[in-house]
Amino acid sequence: MMNTLSSKTLKKLATRPEFYVFIIILLLSLFIQAKSGLFFSNNNIVDLLQSMTVPLIYAICAYLGFISTGPDVSFPLIAALSGYLATQFVFVTGFDGPIFVVFLVAIFFGLIMGAINGFIIANYNFPSLIVTLGTTSIFSGILLGVFEAGRIKLPESMIAFGNKSLFEVTNAGTGLGSSLPMTFLIAVSLYILTYLFLNFTMAGRGVFAVGGDETSAERAGFNVKRIRFGVFTVNGGIAAIAGVCYSIESTYFLPTEFAGKEMIVIAAVILGGTRLLGGVGTLTGCVLGTLLLTIVTNSLILIGVPIYWQKFIIGAIIIVGTAISVIQISDLKGFRRNKRRKVGVA
């Protein structure tokens, strides 16, 4: 009995893309460990977590976009513009109070930008990809053209927060030290909040319902427009948090460093099993997908893989990873042509 049960859960597990990503992560990390002996060192792990922080927050934006509607590609530029505005707020007002006020200012601007996306997408039913591509370009124009934003050293109060760390570790062997910044805690809290929202509120279930079947959602009594508007608005707020975190980590506001990050984040989310067509995907998948791509960008260097090979490997992983989930879906729908439905003679 016990045996059949566990093999059943295993079977169920094996149909989830997250499972395969997990296996790949395991194999890859064991391989790097075997080759270099450095992967499972304390400072490498902390380094990974630190590099994952901002992509993890971005991943929530990409994820919420996909499950409710479709791609959202505007989060890096919302992060940049709202991060810039929050930094300017500190400079102009000379604000020296608690850091969360800086976050609130950024979130405020992020929500406004997200609301613009949400309004257009929900009200006019335009494809989210096109709308967010458009607003990305607009936000970038405002940032670099209107504000003429350049590289800015952050105000002291923000740098101070960046220097605080949750804990520090030193690798006994190499003497290299790493610290985990407070921003990691922010990422973790955002995941917990998103998880609770998606699973325990009707609005959260509505996000899945709308992504699964818009018409059915409307007939069931969900407010489809409000849900979509809400998702993209919240995405703006979350992106703003990521923007401030990113600046704090680098102690500079770097206006040109944001653009282009969306692709790898989206790749991570899709790799983690989020379905392009909406309604399906888990936060665990987002974390695993992000972890895998972070390992590839961060740790392959440990075994001497040149930087330019990383891009190659990332590309390969994305294609293979998505192929797995596509095969899963087509199996489900019985689309395989030549082995068409095994018709049971009932």
């Binding site: 699973n199 325990f200 509120t201 009707m202 609005a203 959260g204 279930r205 899945f208 319902a209 992504g211 699964g212 079947d213 018409t215 059915s216 959602a217 007939r219 069931a220 009594g221 969900f222 379905r275 909406g278 309604g279 399906v280």
Partner: peptide, 28 residues
């Protein structure tokens, strides 16, 4: 004709959504 179901969700949710929403419940 299309049965108005959510293919991506469980049978439970498909059955319960309408009623829960009609009762204006906010939490699951």
């Amino acid at each position: 004709q299309d049965f108005s179901v959510f293919p991506n969700l469980s049978v439970i949710e498909n059955l319960a959504f309408n009623k829960v929403l009609a009762n204006k419940k906010k939490f699951v």
